[in-house]
Design a protein around this nucleic acid. Structure first.
Lengths: 262, 262
DNA sequence: CGGACGATTCGGCGCTCACCGAAGTGTTAT
DNA sequence: ATAACACTTCGGTGAGCGCCGAATCGTCCG
């Protein structure tokens, strides 16, 4: 008779995929997670209003999300601040959203329409650029031979040189390895945009040189005049992705429709 | 007054993350998806038995999974064959499983315990190697300077040379770009293993040279004597990940406990 | 052609869970 | 101290959904 482990060993541990998915299987919780994909920190009250539910309901949802490890929380006085647990979480969520089917939602105000349009145009995705602008960057870089598609995207020698010319990379990194390229399925266009170290460095560079600026308290990005020049000259990006939306939204964080009026 | 789009434009499309997650939020459906992570094709009946539900129940679940785009199906006569929709799906699922909390499950037979142990030891993850062996490969390659951690894993020059010495890569690929490295969160050990082009190539190479062999109708891998020599010499892998499990399981596909007996 | 077999449809049962409002707790402001 | 505020706890309600068995459909085999 073989004693193959301890006597009481009649159980084992399995990752509970269903339990994790159940956290995201609710409209309200999913909306909260998508909101937090901006990489920022929100309070419980902000999320409640955003998702259109009572504060008590939001509390319950946040309890579940934090307990499930998707969110990290920080109590400050009477406020509860939450954010995504980490970059892994953000990346998996965005990939999941890219796989998800589409759903028609009603647009109830001009402000909401503008906000949505701005989101589609250019936004942050945790630490890099997403939206039409992000997709256009990835595609232009591919067309120009800076990236090559092979089981994902890969930086070419020309791509490395292009980044170096920009002043990106070479900063402290050994030349013995190549910068990490990763792609992220854009949930607005279902095409790939750049993430990974290169995507993050590019975003940082664009911010520092004011090619793009962040809208306050929002994940929306606006391309500046300097950005139009730079993206046009260096990547030949078409005007569509460089021109701003007709009317920038006055307020952010008003996206999801509540299930019950009032 | 600005007419900002067509008049009837009072709706928009949003990815329905909650709907997709709802597909995975059920134990039975999640078990089916995890089973399909072996990259193979299963029939409806096989999945029903595996998940411990009635055939009618399995039908309903498969309808949902196919309609939701997670599974692809092929009707052959009276049989219904299903598999994961694609590599993207597989990768996202595996990453999700890596994020999931653990759950204790009862082990009801010695065969099941052996099967589980073998799965933890070495298995395929769609097109590459996972389990303790996969993790050990990634970590040994990192220790030896073949990979470097930077916003993910990255192949170094030494790593490229190492692969070339094995006869991997250089096959048709331009030297102007580096092979694509991607990581996958191992759901049994919560550490990273290699995927992407390099992971797939390594697995193919290991199969061709019979370093590992596949158990029939299973995602389980066994390291051969040749494999022990090769992995030991080339990566210095410790014996633990190279020695086989005490007693290989007689049958596969008997993992998940039914919720109701009989 | 008839029986075995894999898969499907349908009705019905029972459980889970997201929601709210009202009341309560602890913190900050006056 | 008192008031305003952010969040939490709790009870109750209603809807959604996963399950099965029985009956059925269509395919394959003898």
């Amino acid at each position: 008779m073989i004693r193959w482990e301890a006597d009481h060993e009649s159980t084992a541990e399995t990752p509970d995929l269903a339990a994790l998915a159940a956290l995201l299987a609710d409209r309200t919780r999913a909306a909260m997670c998508i909101a937090l994909l901006d990489g920022g920190t929100w309070t419980a009250g902000e999320l409640a209003e955003y998702a259109g539910v009572a504060p008590s309901t939001a509390t319950e949802h946040l309890n579940l999300l934090v307990a499930g490890g998707l969110l990290a929380e920080e109590r400050r006085g009477r406020r509860r601040h939450v954010r995504l647990a980490g970059p892994d979480t953000a990346e998996t969520l965005e990939n999941l959203a890219g796989l998800a089917p589409y759903r028609r939602v009603r647009i109830r105000s001009l402000a909401e329409a503008n906000h949505r349009r701005a989101l589609h145009h250019a936004r942050t995705c945790y630490d890099h650029i997403a939206g039409a602008l992000g997709v256009a960057i990835a595609e232009a870089m591919t067309e120009r031979g800076l990236l090559v598609r092979e089981h994902g995207l890969e930086l070419t020698d020309a791509g490395t040189a292009w980044l170096t010319a920009l002043g990106i990379e070479g900063g402290g990194h050994s030349p013995a390895h190549r910068a990490h390229v990763r792609t992220c399925l854009d949930w607005t266009s279902r095409r790939q945009h750049l993430s990974g170290a290169v995507g993050a460095a590019l975003y940082r560079h664009a911010l520092e040189h004011r090619w793009v600026i962040r809208a306050p308290a929002s994940r929306i990005l606006a391309v500046t005049e300097a950005g139009r020049l730079a993206f046009g000259a260096r990547l030949g990006l078409p005007d569509e992705v460089l021109t701003p939306t007709p009317a920038p939204p006055a307020r952010d964080r008003t996206e999801v429709s509540p299930r019950r009026p009032g």
